[in-house]
Computed example of a mutant assay.
Amino acid sequence: MRPHRRFIAAGCLIIVLLVFWLIAGTSADAEESRGQSSPVPSQTPAVAVPSPSSFSESPAAPDPAPATDNAPALESSAPEPAKPEDRQKPGVAALALLETLPIKGRAPKTGYDRDEIGQAWADVDRNGCDTRNDILARDLSALSFRSNESCRVISGVLQDPYSGRTVEFTRGQETSALVPVDHVVALSDAWQKGAQQLTLEQRTLLANDPLNLLATTQRMNSQKSDGDAATWLPQNKSFRCAYVSRQISVKAAYSLWVTMAEHDAMERILADCPDEAAADSTLVEEPLAPAEPRAAKAPAAEEPARMPAPAADKAAPGAAPSPAPARSVNCSDFDTHAAAQTWFEYYHPMMGDIGGLDADGDLLACVSLP
């Protein structure tokens, strides 16, 4: 019986060993399977296997890049030439500066000639460019210059301060004159209000001072002629404060005076903008002292010391225009705007708008007439 038991025991041992071997093999396979498969879920997003949603969102990511790329392009675009600006008088209002100007009658125009004012468009600031091109470069936008030159303006766009209209400028024999440069204080007006007592060099500065110059249109320049604030104001009403302030600043810099009618007109305009600042000339540090008057001019220089009656403000241009002053005068009494304006300019300084020709207070009479 003992050998049989030994056989049975050996068989049981073999069976037990087989069971352990099978169990161990299964566990090892399971561990190996887990060891190979566990990294896959965590690595799948890192691998470039995009889901459908990632395809739809991917274009949004580059959006910041174009915005960043475009910014330098805008900044690197060629800027327009620097334009000189008037130096503002700190804390000095034009209305206050107006009260410092002498009020005198208009002196005779005797002896006035353009040559008496000095060289036209002289390079007084010594920058190598003549004054007209300096002003065009300052007042126009979208500028182009002659090849290899930094002075001569060939074309540009003017936002006309007097009319408010946009005008294209092109240099040419027939087109250059369409954009003239206006003397804010007309040279003839300046001559009759103190400039004849300045030296030739001082008058040359006056005629070429950027403070006294503005690019405008031929039509506005012709309408203004040598008028002062009592007889002409810009059609663009929003510019009138700046215009009058500029005239006051010029007259203060060059020791010029104003007539009573002119003073009152300036005061009336500035009443709507009492904080409008005056400006300094870039050519004149302090107001110019008038030169000693020439012997022939002595009587004229002494006469304004007396306060004249308003009637003496405006020299009568020959015979008084018809019709005679009357409350019944109206625009129907004139054929053209020019005729009405002549009548208005003659009587207005003495009597005001007795005919009611200036409906909107812009000192332009019967603008509805041809």
Rank of each mutant, 00 (worst) to 15 (best):
P299D: 03
S281I: 14
A300F: 00
P299S: 03
L283P: 11
S281P: 15
D264R: 10
T282I: 14
L288C: 01
S222I: 15
A229M: 14
A312W: 04
A229S: 15
P287G: 05
S255M: 02
A265E: 09
L256W: 02
P290Y: 10
E262D: 00
A229I: 11
A309V: 04
P274C: 04
S249H: 01
A277E: 02
E286R: 05
A271Y: 09
S255L: 04
A279W: 15
A311R: 14
A300D: 03
K224H: 06
G227W: 02
L270V: 05
T259C: 03
A301Y: 12
M266D: 05
M266Q: 07
V258E: 01
E302I: 14
E303R: 05
A265Q: 05
N236S: 07
N236T: 06
I269K: 13
L270E: 06
D264V: 03
S225L: 08
P304H: 02
M266K: 07
T259S: 11
V284D: 12
T231W: 06
V284W: 06
V244G: 04
P234W: 13
E262G: 00
D280Y: 15
Q223I: 08
R294Y: 13
E285P: 11
E302C: 09
Q223W: 12
Y243R: 00
A301S: 10
Q247R: 00
S249E: 09
D313I: 00
A295C: 03
A316M: 11
R294H: 10
